[in-house]
Design a protein around this nucleic acid. Structure first.
Length: 483
DNA sequence: TTTTGAGTTGTTCGA
DNA sequence: GTCGAACAACTCAAA
């Protein structure tokens, strides 16, 4: 007769280190059933294509790490509440533990599961593995949620202190006869034909890859982070976003490692502050999502719902395919399509272009990013789109319209980034790389370009800018006290 | 309750 | 070429 097992329900916490729910399960001394549930479409927002690709590889990596400890992952598919409940019954578990997912539908679902398990006499507990603070932990003096980043982050830094980091378990007691598992291949998360993920190869999904990525960053880009993280042609950003999203590494680990690296002289105080504030934006976005579970659907500032967005299928298609005629925008959109990721600075320019130059609803862009980004996140993606569109919390003023040429010349001065992702422009001189339409036929010819290689701009910048200013200005009702 | 200072990432124009 | 101001008002957070 074996002891009753405890179920660990893996979610967006696909790691062994600093995993409080896993630690709870292992410390119980009882056999652990390690469960992952692929939710069906009825449960919240279905994963996008790039996310599914990542998930398959991350689950493989997790299973491998667990295997080294003599355990294995059990895969099931369906409505998570029913699946977890059924599993508890199947193995006779008296305990279920998990790390919380902080999303729109997830919280209600967790509450439902907890109630159901409790009814069945099963003890259910959840932990926080993915955020430095609970998203509802901080309140303003008036008791509301923060809507401006700076005061939020000031309060957050004071509350965070020095977060504790848990080590990985050294052993996991397995059940003698673990429950049956789905075969990962049968989930067909990975694209078969065509394999559009062929260019995703730089990523190493999983905890080992996440740790390697963090270490490489701390040794390399960290010391240039504040100065150069805005330059897409240079490797100075951390590229941790997908690893953090899937919980292959947690923010507490990044926090601690960054402080240690900074103390060891690998980066300045400024670099450290900048990196921490990026973690801060991640916290802030989750704080906003907790406040507005419908963040991906509804403008944070309701006045923006009156915006007369244009219907422009051709413009949208050109944007998605990276054929707007603006090299920096196109380079970004192609990097996204090819690698599942886009540099942060270029995301701003590309998103601004869709919303301001094309006047297309930010939700269209949010959906495209959701499908194509390996770091597509329920909090970060909509919050950042809303910020760019002007309808978000603490958003940029509407008259701040990025000039894709000026941004290119400022942040990609030598055109390295554009040349990498828009190779048909590679032969152009630096002076034309961000505005190829200014080149003469002879110059294009000298650059090895054929007519039609690269499209003319879909909109003219100055005109589009004025159109956007006009449209956004009309959103704010005219003041009533003027004669 | 009222007041006050401030607010991630920009662009353009004119001196 | 460089610099400062204008761009529009509004809302937030704390005193």
């Amino acid at each position: 007769m074996t002891e009753a097992p405890i179920i660990l329900w893996f979610r967006q916490d696909l790691r062994l280190a600093d995993n409080p729910a896993l630690r709870l399960a292992c410390d119980s001394g009882r056999p652990v059933v390690l469960l992952y549930v692929l939710a069906d479409a009825a449960d919240g927002r279905p994963w996008g294509g790039a996310s599914r690709w990542w998930l398959e590889l991350s689950l493989r990596a997790l299973d491998l790490s667990l295997g080294a400890l003599g355990a294995r992952l059990v895969l099931r598919r369906g409505d998570p509440v029913s699946v977890v409940e059924a599993m508890a019954r199947e193995v006779g578990a008296t305990d279920v533990v998990w790390n919380r997912v902080y999303g729109g539908a997830a919280q209600a679902r967790d509450a439902a599961l907890m109630a159901r398990l409790t009814e069945n006499g099963v003890r259910a507990r959840s932990c926080n593995a993915s955020l430095l603070l609970e998203p509802w932990a901080l309140r303003t003096g008036a008791g509301g949620a923060y809507k401006v980043f700076t005061p939020f982050w000031r309060a957050a830094r004071a509350a965070i202190g020095a977060p504790e980091v848990l080590g990985a378990p050294t052993r996991i007691a397995a059940l003698e006869r673990p429950p049956a598992s789905d075969r990962l291949e049968d989930w067909t998360l990975y694209p078969a034909a065509p394999d559009w993920a062929a260019g995703f190869g730089d990523w190493i999904p999983g905890e080992v890859g996440a740790r390697a990525r963090l270490d490489a960053f701390l040794q390399g880009g960290f010391g240039r982070y504040a100065a150069q993280r805005d330059e897409p042609g240079i490797e100075a950003s951390s590229r941790l976003s997908p690893h953090l999203h899937w919980g292959e590494i947690g923010p507490r680990q990044v926090w601690a490692a960054a402080h240690a690296a900074s103390a060891a002289g690998l980066a300045s105080e400024r670099d450290l502050d900048k990196l921490l504030s990026e973690l801060g934006w991640r916290e802030f976005n989750h704080h906003l999502l907790a406040e507005r579970p419908d963040l991906k659907d509804a403008a944070f500032k309701p006045a923006y719902e009156a915006m007369p967005w244009r219907s422009d299928p051709q413009g949208l298609a050109a944007w998605r395919r990276g054929r707007t005629g603006y090299p920096l925008v196109d380079a970004g959109m192609r990097q996204l399509w090819t690698t599942g990721w886009m540099h942060n600075r270029v995301r701003l320019v590309a998103a601004s272009f869709l919303v301001k130059h094309l006047l297309i609803d930010w939700r269209e862009g949010e959906r495209w990013f959701w499908d194509t980004l390996v770091d597509a996140d329920e909090a970060n993606n909509p919050a950042n789109w809303q910020w760019v569109a002007g309808c978000g919390a603490d958003a940029s003023p509407f008259f701040r319209i990025f000039n894709p040429v000026a941004q290119g010349e400022r942040f990609d001065p030598k055109g390295d980034y554009v040349r990498r992702w828009v190779p048909e422009l590679a032969g152009l001189p630096d002076s034309l790389i961000h505005q190829p339409w200014k080149g003469t036929a002879a110059e294009r010819n000298r650059a090895g370009m054929e007519p039609g290689d690269y499209p003319a701009p879909v909109v003219e910048h100055a005109q589009a800018r004025l159109r956007a200013l006009d449209a956004f200005k009309n959103l704010t009702p005219p003041s009533t006290d003027s004669l």
